[in-house]
């Protein structure tokens, strides 16, 4: 039994890894092909036009692609940073204080997870259009700051990583609640908050629905939406497919880099604090 164990399970895992890496490998190879090669050569044979494709992508409509990338970085970077901070403060308060309305606030936030993005984005759009704020950076940035899922995770982390007696000791020493939060609790929660930041970064970078509904001016598009509009035009201009594929590759590189460099923060503990609380 022991002897057989090494082989088959390792094989199964490697098959899973191959399945997950295959489309990524495909896009790397496909990005090297010219439009003609994309539809004529065998899938995994490398083409000759990577640099030409990148150059064409960069000059497509005066470099709008790089503008989309910069927009995505702004929406995801700033949004996730603010979201991690907000989740940290809120999660700590929900985990470490008992106060009237705590259960109501927590359950209300959790219920927010259940509301589909489309269902939310349509009335958000209608309400913002009444005050003339649609098609602005803020209309995409602000909704990304509040993340019920991030607050839930932060609460789990606060419950698990901030010991009660440390908070009590600081209190006995006369530290204010704000000071306890900023110099005792939040520093202890940093690893968890990095995880929240990563999740929110990926989720904003990947968000398609909200910008799709909010934005009309393609100078404000994030890269996902920009590539989608290019794909739609590809129906009539197949030459765009090459650019879409190359753009897809470029657009996932920052995420893959973030993923590999911060991989030890990808621990998703949905339960440890929640069950005890």
């Amino acid at each position: 039994m022991r002897a057989r164990l090494g082989g088959l399970p390792t094989f199964v895992l490697l098959v899973g890894a191959a399945y997950c890496l295959f489309p990524v490998a495909w896009v790397v190879v496909a990005a090297t092909k010219s439009t003609g090669e994309l539809f004529s050569t065998t899938t995994l044979s490398v083409g000759t036009s990577l640099l030409a494709n990148l150059g064409e992508l960069g000059s497509y409509r005066d470099g709008v692609f790089w503008r989309w990338m910069a927009n995505s970085a702004l929406y995801a970077g700033l949004g996730a940073l603010l979201s991690a901070a907000l989740s940290g403060v809120t999660g700590y308060a929900l985990a470490k204080y008992s106060f009237r309305g705590r259960a109501l606030i927590f359950n209300g936030l959790l219920a927010g997870v259940l509301v589909p993005a489309v269902v939310l984005a349509i009335p958000q759009y209608l309400l913002l259009s009444k005050v003339g704020l649609t098609d602005t950076y803020l209309s995409v940035l602000v909704p990304g700051v509040i993340s019920p899922y991030g607050i839930y995770l932060a609460r789990v982390y606060a419950a698990a990583s901030v010991p009660e007696d440390v908070v009590e000791a600081a209190r006995t020493d006369g530290a204010s609640e704000l000071r306890i939060l900023t110099s005792v609790a939040l520093p202890m929660m940093v690893p968890g908050l990095v995880t929240v930041f990563l999740f929110q970064f990926v989720s904003i970078w990947n968000n398609f629905m909200l910008p799709y509904i909010m934005l009309g001016d393609d100078g404000k598009f994030p890269v996902t939406l920009g590539l989608y509009t290019m794909l739609k035009q590809g129906n009539t201009t197949p030459a765009l497919y090459t650019l879409v594929v190359t753009g897809a590759l470029v657009s996932v590189l920052p995420l893959i880099a973030l993923f590999l460099t911060l991989q030890r923060y990808w621990r998703i503990d949905l339960l440890s604090g929640a069950v005890k609380a």
Binding site: L13, L14, Y228
Partner: peptide, 26 residues
Amino acid sequence: RVRARGFSRIAIFLPYAIPVVIASLL
């Protein structure tokens, strides 16, 4: 006793980082 665990874990988790729009397109 299973080998290549670190590699498999990252490889299988990697698609999570790929936007759904891009994944659908690929």
